[in-house]
């Protein structure tokens, strides 16, 4: 147990400079009980794995079903607000709306595309669960045939009374932190305009 808490403390120390950069976490994210978060990930994960490993479903339908599960279980709007960070305030109301729509499509497509390829995937619940003020971290170990097992942690928060996924952390790399860094770079290289991010997202989605 001592090792666990030391690791979490170490994590907090490392995250502290990043936290200074962060905008306030969307107010909807509230503390959640680790058991409830684990049960939620167990259920969502089992559902996902069931769809991914079902050979009776054609590939495009499988992606569609994975996308549906993600729409239900991920707090897409909260994640969108997190990844655009300080540029949210800078965006016009129309840009904000456009960004939310594009981000949802991009996130769901990218994740569904990735998970859709994971045939034969299995996952087991990890042992190290931890809780912060805003969320709980649920660890899982993902195994696929022919590749090394990897650690996938799910950050789960309480959004308006229901558990929702707010981040995916693969081998210590957070999807939302990486995406925020990516978007910030796109905006800065686009002369600080949020419109440059919207243009890039549209191009990627083939619009």
């Amino acid at each position: 147990m001592i090792r666990v808490s030391r690791r979490i403390l170490g994590g907090l120390v490392l995250l502290a400079p990043a936290a200074a950069v962060l905008p306030a976490i969307p107010p909807a994210w509230a503390q959640i009980d680790t058991n409830r978060a684990s049960a939620f990930i167990q259920a969502s994960g089992t559902e996902l794995v069931g769809v991914i490993n079902n050979p009776g479903i054609p590939a495009d339908q499988r992606r569609q079903k994975v996308a549906d599960i993600l729409r239900r279980s991920v707090d897409i709007e909260g994640v969108a607000r997190f990844v655009i960070g300080r540029f949210w305030r800078q965006a016009s109301a129309q840009e904000q709306q456009e960004f939310l729509t594009l981000f949802e499509e991009s996130l769901v497509r990218n994740l569904a595309g990735r998970f859709g390829e994971y045939q034969g995937v299995r996952f087991e619940m990890g042992r190290s669960q931890s809780r912060t003020d805003d969320d709980a971290l649920v660890s899982t170990i993902v195994t696929r045939p022919g590749t090394a097992a990897f650690n996938l942690d799910w950050r789960v928060s309480d959004v308006n009374g229901a558990p929702r996924i707010v981040d995916l952390i693969a081998e210590g790399t957070s999807l939302r932190l990486t995406t925020r860094s990516e978007y910030s770079s796109v905006i800065q290289r686009g002369g600080g305009q949020v419109s440059s991010l919207i243009t890039a997202l549209k191009r990627q989605l083939g619009r």
Partner: peptide, 14 residues
């Protein structure tokens, strides 16, 4: 949308 920035962030975290 910017692989250079993604790799920079991911490598720092890992």
């Amino acid at each position: 949308l910017d692989p250079y920035a993604t790799i920079r962030s991911a490598s720092r975290q890992s």
